[in-house]
Design a protein around this nucleic acid. Structure first.
Lengths: 135, 135
DNA sequence: ATATTGTGCTATCTGAAGTCGAACAAGTAG
DNA sequence: CTACTTGTTCGACTTCAGATAGCACAATAT
């Protein structure tokens, strides 16, 4: 099965290309438009069809890998992580928060900074105590 | 009444100083630790006591002004906007979302990017039609 | 009047970020 | 085993953001 995911890049925007690309794919994964196990196009191919350098695509892929959304293997390509799924609630919460922020006329940058700050003050998951694995 | 707001700057962090400073003050405003009408220290003074350049402080102030959180006036200083208040719900929603994201092991950068993406697709407030002001 | 305080401008230095080219290594497929 | 595919690594280059500094200026407060 051949799937096409709309990817729109705007070189004039301040956001770096690899970030725009990562954002597109990330959103597709979170929304469930691409499912776990599915393979993304090879970096060289995607780079050609988008008119950008291979490294730029690879960097976007690496970002997603560091976020645990995809896996990268030489000769095999980029594959969406299988444990992905059920993020629908999170997607909904995000949209709700954005709506709330706009209601208060709070700019995007401010909301992002507030979230970043919130992250800083809850370094670890609350109430989760991991025991040693039984070998 | 003299008030002291804890401000912690770390030059070694990747986040620029003016951003860290803005984040500190912003959080204090949203949380209600400083109320509308209250005056912030003069840029020169704060710069001296923090060991940074005046322009750096001024830039942080300008950021907060652009976000509508404070007002700047020559000779008068920086004053917290009066219309601020009732953001407690928003602050709560933010913390909830962050907790949810951590539950899914989603890194900070990914969450920020997702929110940025969400902002991009709802450019205007929904259902708000501004009529021309009656002169 | 005089001191205070943000604004505007120019200039400099440093470090990081983004993009790219070429060679390389791990895996796949015949 | 051989050839091909695909991500990885190294190095280089260019551009830009952040921070600092100094100075003159304008609006406001006392």
């Amino acid at each position: 099965m051949i799937k096409a995911v709309l990817i729109r890049l705007d070189p004039t925007r301040a956001t770096p290309i690899f970030d725009q690309l990562a954002a597109s794919v990330r959103a597709a994964i979170i929304d469930g438009r691409v499912i776990g196990g599915e393979r993304l196009p090879a970096a060289r191919d995607l780079a050609d069809s988008l008119g950008v350098n291979m490294h730029t695509v690879l960097r976007a892929y690496r970002v997603l890998r560091d976020e645990g959304l995809i896996e990268l293997h030489r000769g095999r390509g980029a594959v969406v992580a299988v444990r992905i799924g059920g993020h629908a609630a999170l997607a909904g919460a995000i949209h709700d928060l954005v709506d709330e922020a706009k209601l208060h006329d709070l700019p995007e940058s401010a909301l992002l900074a507030l979230i970043s700050e919130a992250y800083r003050w809850t370094p670890s998951a609350p109430g989760v105590l991991r025991t040693a694995p039984t070998r």
